[in-house]
Amino acid sequence: MWKTLRQIARTGIVTQPPPTGDGSLRLREALQADIREILGRALCIRVVDSGSCNGCELEIQALNNPVYNLEGLGIRFVASPRHADLLLVTGPVARNMDVALRRTWDAMPDPKLVLATGDCAATGGIFGETYATRGRLASVIPVDIVVPGCPPAPERILAGILAAIRASHAHPRSR
């Protein structure tokens, strides 16, 4: 036990200040202003991998590491769409995931936001629109924010997430 405590003490606090929300990633500015007002700073996110290569997932997982410390910002990933404010989607929407993706979106309560993460969800990426993929996420469900990248760095995904919530509100951890 003392070894564990010593390791915790030696590691210290490694969390870095979060980036500011990047408004340029928003697709539907005016429409969503009221939603950002309702949600305030806290946000619950449901992730759906619609057929990604798993690259984006690795960077989304990184948001939970002590450096980005997403939960410290009042933002967390939830296990049910019923609890979620924001749907974070990766991948070029494999047709085999089409039903599951739509059902997840349908199950979310209003108001709800959708964030397309990575080049595949943004444009279809290298996979494009084929017999097996539908291509860009926006052709399947309405998208509010797009974070391109292959895969996007955690800071970029975080900037996209923060763009979903009240931008004007100064954040306690931002310096």
Binding site: D49, G51, S52, G91, P92, A94, R95, N96, M97, A100, I126, F127, G128, T130, Y131, A132, T133
Partner: peptide
């Protein structure tokens, strides 16, 4: 499995 099928062999 097969949910992430993206038709890569045809691509």
């Amino acid at each position: 499995l097969g949910y992430a099928h993206k038709g890569v062999e045809r691509r």
